[in-house]
Design a protein around this nucleic acid. Structure first.
Lengths: 110, 110
DNA sequence: ACGCTTAATCGTATATTTGCGATATAAGAT
DNA sequence: ATCTTATATCGCAAATATACGATTAAGCGT
């Protein structure tokens, strides 16, 4: 393979793809659900809820953070995560506009 | 790793994750755009538009088909693909309901 | 039957993802 | 200072994904 072709696509396509990638594992969707459900920011509670080891959950959290979907700040010995609603809304809007764009171009074939 | 934990999550989470996975590569988003844009189902035209080899495009098409997002039927020596709007709408709706669910549970933290 | 065109599949190389245990780090408590 | 708790990171193994060239298969025209 050697070379990655991802950067040859449009910025929009790459952005949507990386958002989708962040949501492409059930664990990460579950994490977002937990974060949205609690009225406090959660840390190790996520580990208890998910069927995964602590280190694995930490990794998924890192990916969500890298994607910009969640924020995390340390609170003493523990970490507090929450959804970055601003980024989330942006992606959500971009996503819906993709859906809309595809739909309105629907020309009935096959 | 040896064991996959994906099946330990809810059906909904798995379903959304696999939909997101299908959209997690810019090439596949580009393919969906092309399919929506043309008023005929496209085949090798996609290869011309994308910066990828024929075999690679074929692989991406296969993944989109496996995810149920597109249908394909052979037309002589060529293949005709189109978006499976029914499945697409379903996923789109599921996705938006996830977004809504997350949003309404927003309890303002961090 | 033969060649041409188109697309799928095979084989392969490399990169990335997923997962875990073990270790390191950082802060609070004793 | 040391212990405890919580989390992140490291190192590793296995699975998947990405990409390509080469080959195969399937239809069409001649």
């Amino acid at each position: 393979m050697a070379i990655h072709k991802k950067e040859e696509f449009s910025v929009k396509e790459q952005s949507l793809a990386s958002f989708a990638k962040a949501l492409s594992h059930p664990a990460r969707i579950a994490i977002l659900s937990v974060l949205a459900k609690r009225n406090q920011c959660i840390c190790g509670e996520i580990v208890e809820v998910l069927p995964l080891a602590q280190s694995t959950v930490s990794q998924h959290l890192k990916e969500l953070k890298n994607a910009g979907l969640i924020d995390g700040e340390t609170d003493g010995p523990r970490s507090c995560y929450c959804i970055n609603w601003k980024a989330f809304e942006k992606f959500n809007a971009d996503f819906n506009s993709l859906f809309e764009k595809l739909k309105e171009q629907n020309a009935k074939c096959c």
